[in-house]
């Protein structure tokens, strides 16, 4: 799944979003000195090889009425983590689901799922459903509701490309 040098440049050029003009991929390609067909082919490959999870409209939950986000954290026994992780991902109200490292003494939780809902009551209902349907009543958990959003944007990959990749070089 190695990325081509040009892939970094294409993803970098897309960071601010696909231009809202009739031929947006051509705009990106021209910026990078590439062919439009090449840009399209690379995006297609990156989707097929799993580097990209999806390509499309990225909505802002809060502005669309999903004003409450609860980060629900669980201390799942290691032998159940795959089962529970896969099970949680099937619920449409779960928007992220990761296994993360524990950090003792004060962070025993190893499974994180993000739940977006209209309000707190709905988040709590969803969590109850997860507990009930996955037999998790005895599992230690916590819900961290967000109270302020300071910053939300897509990741920037400007500095992520290998040091030898530069725009000039790719354009040659």
């Amino acid at each position: 799944m190695a990325l081509l040098e040009q892939d970094y440049l294409i993803l970098e050029a897309l960071q601010g979003g696909l231009p809202l003009v009739a031929e947006p991929y051509k705009v990106i390609a021209d910026q990078l000195g590439m062919k439009e067909a090449f840009v399209l082919e690379r995006l297609n490959d990156l989707l097929n090889n799993g580097t990209l999870k999806r390509f499309g409209v990225i909505v802002r939950h809060h502005e669309l009425g999903y004003r409450c986000n609860g980060m629900c954290v669980w201390e799942i026994p290691i032998e159940r983590i795959d089962e529970i992780g896969h099970a949680f991902s099937q619920y449409d109200f779960v928007t992220l689901c990761y296994e993360r490292n524990k950090r003792f003494p004060d962070w025993p939780y190893n499974l994180f799922c993000m739940i977006h809902a209209k309000d707190r009551a709905h988040v709590l209902q969803h969590v109850d459903q997860l507990v009930r349907e996955n037999d998790l009543a005895d599992v230690k958990r916590d819900i961290l509701f967000s109270t302020r959003r300071f910053k939300q944007r897509g990741a920037r990959y400007n500095d992520c490309r290998p040091a030898h990749v530069s725009l000039q070089r790719a354009a040659q």
């Binding site: 979003g17 990209l52 390509f55 499309g56 909505v59 897509g154």
Partner: peptide, 9 residues
């Protein structure tokens, strides 16, 4: 309402 049309890596 829309952040952008883009890629989720």
């Amino acid at each position: 309402h829309v952040s952008r049309i883009g890629a989720i890596v």
